[in-house]
Design a binder for these strands. Structure first.
Length: 321
DNA sequence: GTTCTAGAAC
DNA sequence: GTTCTAGAAC
């Protein structure tokens, strides 16, 4: 996905991670399994298996939980709503954030673990600020104001065409790296790869524009409400696939309409609860969860059968990736 | 974004 | 009586 935009910028170098300062809550459902391998993915250097990091999170999270009132939490507990902005403005994220929170970093983007993943794999990609980095010669005259990085809407409205293309290309490239890491991990833990969605929320609740990279199983204990589920359906209009945004910036004649559509997208979250894979109506969330588990088990069985027979997955590249 | 909980739904 | 959702509070 997200190709056709431009040659990639810089290669990311691995890092340490942090999402917002929220306690990570990996659960037994999470596929990030016990196995620890070294990532073989091309680009970055010291890669470390996602699974290892998430497991480490457990100890990290209990420590954090026990010191809730401290710094990183806003009053009353829970992650701060501008945690992402705090990450984005760090001058040295790799040294500031633990690997349990930071997945990857490059000179102009970060990829972090979502603190409350809504699927087996769920990461956020965000542009760093300043963007481009001050070290970049171009930065002298092209630094957009921080407000332009609040969300997708401000990116589209407050940034000139060239700048927003740069930001989107960088984010898209980082998302692709994250996808590769996820696919590696899927193969190692389940023996097959499944669909990954990449896109923005029309109305995000955390400040600082971020791109979701989320596996389409939607199996996670943190997925608790209809709004959670609807907010990631690529067919509703609240979740905006990055490829669609890329089409927008190629033809920006209708930009105002598109931005207006973003602003009025909240009502879409009240759409009746149906399965995003087969569209069957679900009377409640627990039933959806059971239903999604069934989808996953069936898909895995079918893929593994196909792999055994043909040596390759059934789904074609264009269908899945 | 989450947590908490009243009261609707079963 | 128990499960589940949705809105207020954070």
């Amino acid at each position: 996905m997200g190709n056709c935009l431009a040659p990639l910028a810089q290669s990311s170098s691995s890092a340490t991670a942090e999402q917002d300062s929220a306690p990570q809550q990996p659960t037994p459902e999470q596929p990030l399994s016990p196995i620890s391998h070294v990532f073989s993915t091309s680009s970055s250097s010291s890669r470390q298996p996602i699974s290892d990091r998430v497991r480490r999170n457990k100890s990290v999270s209990s420590k954090v939980r026990n010191s809730r009132s401290s710094s990183i939490f806003s009053m009353g507990g829970g992650p701060s709503l501008d945690a992402l902005r705090n990450y984005a403005t760090l001058s040295n994220p790799t040294s500031s954030l633990p690997p349990s929170k930071l997945l990857l970093s490059s000179s102009n983007t970060l990829a972090v673990f979502d603190a409350y993943p809504k699927a087996k794999y769920h990461f956020l990609v965000l542009p760093r600020y300043p963007f481009p980095p001050l070290s970049n010669p171009e930065s002298k005259n092209s630094i957009a104001p921080l407000e332009a990085f609040d969300d997708l809407k401000s990116l589209l409205m407050k940034m000139n065409r060239e700048a927003r293309e740069d930001v989107l290309i960088s984010m898209s490239n980082m998302a692709r790296e994250v996808e590769e890491m996820i696919r590696d991990e899927m193969l190692k833990t389940e023996g097959f790869e499944w669909k990954i969605d990449v896109g923005f929320h029309a109305i995000p609740s955390m400040k600082h524009v971020h791109l979701h990279v989320i596996s389409d199983d939607r199996i996670s204990p943190s997925l608790k409400t209809k709004k959670h589920h609807n907010s990631f359906r690529p067919d509703l209009g609240f979740f905006i696939p990055i490829m669609e945004v890329q089409r927008w910036i190629e033809d920006d004649s209708n930009m105002q309409e598109r931005v207006d559509a973003l602003s009025s997208a909240e009502r879409l979250l009240n759409t009746p609860l149906t399965c995003h894979k087969c569209d069957e109506f679900m009377t409640n969330i627990p039933k959806l969860k059971t239903h999604l588990e069934k989808h996953f088990v069936e898909e895995r069985a079918a893929e593994l059968r196909h792999i055994a027979r043909h040596g390759t997955q059934r789904n074609s590249d264009e269908e899945m990736f």
